[in-house]
């Protein structure tokens, strides 16, 4: 039986997850975010993380989730997808969970296609539905302008 470890985070009322292997670390949102010219508005800017410049993406804006104030629980989740660092602003990083691979419900191809293959499947824990994002597609998605 194969297990997957997932990092679960919140955007508005929804919970999302990414495979833990794509995560590098969780930090507080830095006060200083360097704005970048000529970039879509969902890219907040760049930060310096221990000598590496990392773009910061407002994922809620990118996903079209209703905007809400950043609170005390808002965090910057630093991802490392194929050695490219991306920071995404999330409302809260809830937990790290371990699930059986088979328990992940795959979305059918049509639905998956509509969402540009961002969502890979759904994890069901008790009453909660956690949307599992496709890490590999994710990088391309968030960094591709529409």
């Amino acid at each position: 039986m194969r297990f997957l470890q997932l990092v679960v985070f919140r955007l508005g009322d929804e919970e999302y997850a990414l495979e833990i292997t794509f995560a590098q670390e969780i930090i507080r949102i830095p006060e200083r975010i360097t704005k970048m010219p000529y970039l879509p508005s969902y890219i907040e800017g760049m930060i310096d993380l221990r000598g590496k410049a990392i773009p910061v993406i407002d994922l809620k804006e990118r996903f079209g989730v209703e905007q809400s104030e950043r609170g005390v629980d808002s965090r910057l989740l630093i991802l490392n997808i194929e050695n490219v660092g991306i920071g995404i602003i999330v409302d809260d990083v809830s937990e790290v969970i371990k699930v059986e691979e088979q328990s992940i419900e795959r979305l059918n191809a049509e639905l998956s296609g509509l969402g540009s293959s961002k969502v890979q499947g759904v994890v069901r824990i008790d009453e909660r539905l956690i949307l599992l994002l496709n890490g590999l597609n994710f990088r391309a998605e968030v960094l591709t302008s529409r």
């Binding site: 470890q5 833990i20 292997t21 995560a23 969780i26 990083v93 937990e95």
Partner: peptide, 13 residues
């Protein structure tokens, strides 16, 4: 909590 989560990420890696 953040420490714990980072530790978990580090452990997974």
């Amino acid at each position: 909590k953040m420490l714990g989560l980072n530790a978990a990420i580090e452990a997974a890696r």
